[in-house]
Computed example of a mutant assay.
Amino acid sequence: MTSKPTTAGTAAAASAVSKAGPRRRGRPVKSENDSLRGELIKRSAYLFRTQGYDNTTVRDIAAATGIHSGSWFYHFKTKQEILAAVMEQGMTESLASLEAIGLHTLAPRMAFQRLVEVHLHTMLAPNHDFIPVLLYEWRSLDKDARSRIVKLKDRYEAIWDEVIAALHQSGDWSMPTRLDRLFLFGALNWTAQWYKPGRTGLEELAAQAVTFILRTSPRPA
Rank of each mutant, 00 (worst) to 15 (best):
L152F: 11
T177V: 05
G201T: 15
W173V: 04
W194P: 00
A16R: 07
Y53W: 11
D54W: 00
D180I: 00
K79V: 01
T211S: 11
G66C: 03
Q113M: 15
D180V: 00
L40D: 02
S174R: 13
H121R: 15
P22Q: 11
I164D: 02
L115Q: 13
Y46H: 12
K151D: 13
F130P: 00
A111N: 08
L184C: 09
Y195D: 06
T6W: 03
R146D: 04
N127W: 07
W173Q: 05
M110W: 01
W190A: 14
S97R: 14
R43T: 04
R37Q: 13
I101L: 15
L188I: 13
H128G: 01
H128V: 00
D161Q: 12
R199T: 15
S140H: 13
L205V: 09
T6M: 08
V210G: 04
M87L: 12
R114S: 14
E32R: 04
E162C: 06
G171I: 04
A84I: 04
S69L: 02
W72S: 02
T200D: 08
S15G: 06
E39G: 10
F48V: 03
K77C: 00
E157Y: 08
W160T: 08
K42E: 09
R146T: 12
V163L: 09
D154G: 00
Y74W: 06
R59S: 05
A45T: 01
K19H: 11
Y136V: 10
I67C: 03
V118P: 04
R114V: 02
L47K: 03
L152H: 13
K42I: 00
